Simulated assay, not measured.
Amino acid sequence: MAGQVGARVGILGAGAVGGMLAVLLAEAGHEVTVLASERTSTAINVGGIALRSQKFGDRRAHVPARPYLTAPVDVLFVAVKAPDLLAALGRVPAALLSDTAVAPLLNGTDHVALLRAALPRTAVVPMTVSVEATRTAPGDIEHLSPFLEYALAEERERARVDPEDLLRTTGLDVDASAPDEATLLWRKLSFLAPLALLTTHARQPVGPARDAHPDLLDGLVTETAAAAATAGAEIDPAAVAKRIAGLPAGMRSSMLKDAIAGATLELDAIAGPILRALPDGAPVTRAVVAEIAEAR
């Protein structure tokens, strides 16, 4: 029954990732509830969630939204930004999640331990998502490229309703090749941190930024791979560099978009694990983070 139609799904956060997921899961026949601020909940309850996607086309789903969870769910996807996690947990009473799989989709690594401490009676199943998407207004999501990939570890806590099976009912690609949680999380971070830090530091999309600062990019990639090794995750810097080299020149990281918009940056979630893993090293990452923080 793990991925059966009609599963009760909560989505904490109605940004680009959470909003898109709400549309896809609702269209697959699941009972979706979105948990967001009163302003965003009202907008969704009035007009639904509109998704404009290169991969899925134009879709709109009318799903209930509310400021806090009022009934148990089978799976809770946590799709808030890392700096908002602690406050967002107030929207999901732990007593309603005792038989729930909690699947966080946050950047970084530290959120997993926090969720397990805050929700000790749940199965926390870390996941990652790679996508270029933007919330242009409450309930209005743009998926800017056809690429969309979810991943989770082969070795993970098992729950009555498994998030992997649930996502597969929507037709989404799910990569379960990571052998463990550390590898899963650092595979994402080893790519995301150099991309986000480089583009935000340069205030440019990835094409101009990587062309103008090849040595900076190389240092960021090398240091992130070294930090991953301290957690037992084996990352190939050459493979990461090749992946970044193949990105569309106009692609902008979420951190760059946030910096341009004057929004809070996920600096600690994305760079913090590297700096904490290499307290006497990572000079390139340290300098870039310092410059980004000073510019704020």
Results as ranks from 00 to 15, higher is better:
residue 196 A to H: 08
residue 166 L to G: 11
residue 176 A to I: 10
residue 148 L to V: 09
residue 154 E to P: 07
residue 148 L to W: 09
residue 182 A to R: 00
residue 182 A to S: 02
residue 192 L to C: 06
residue 172 L to D: 04
residue 154 E to Y: 07
residue 177 S to D: 14
residue 159 A to D: 11
residue 150 Y to L: 14
residue 189 L to E: 03
residue 168 R to Q: 07
residue 164 E to T: 10
residue 153 A to V: 02
residue 192 L to H: 00
residue 160 R to C: 04
residue 170 T to N: 13
residue 158 R to I: 03
residue 163 P to W: 09
residue 179 P to I: 00
residue 192 L to D: 06
residue 151 A to H: 11
residue 169 T to W: 05
residue 191 F to G: 01
residue 185 L to R: 00
residue 194 P to K: 01
residue 180 D to Q: 01
residue 150 Y to Q: 11
residue 151 A to L: 11
residue 186 W to A: 05
residue 171 G to C: 13
residue 187 R to L: 01
residue 149 E to Q: 14
residue 188 K to M: 08
residue 191 F to K: 10
residue 154 E to G: 13
residue 166 L to W: 13
residue 148 L to C: 15
residue 152 L to C: 04
residue 170 T to H: 14
residue 171 G to D: 07
residue 184 L to E: 06
residue 185 L to K: 03
residue 192 L to F: 02
residue 150 Y to T: 03
residue 181 E to Q: 13
residue 156 R to A: 05
residue 183 T to G: 09
residue 156 R to E: 05
residue 187 R to N: 13
residue 156 R to P: 14
residue 154 E to S: 13
residue 183 T to L: 08
residue 191 F to V: 12
residue 149 E to N: 12
residue 177 S to M: 05
residue 151 A to G: 14
residue 194 P to I: 03
residue 174 V to Y: 08
residue 197 L to D: 10
residue 168 R to P: 02
residue 185 L to P: 00
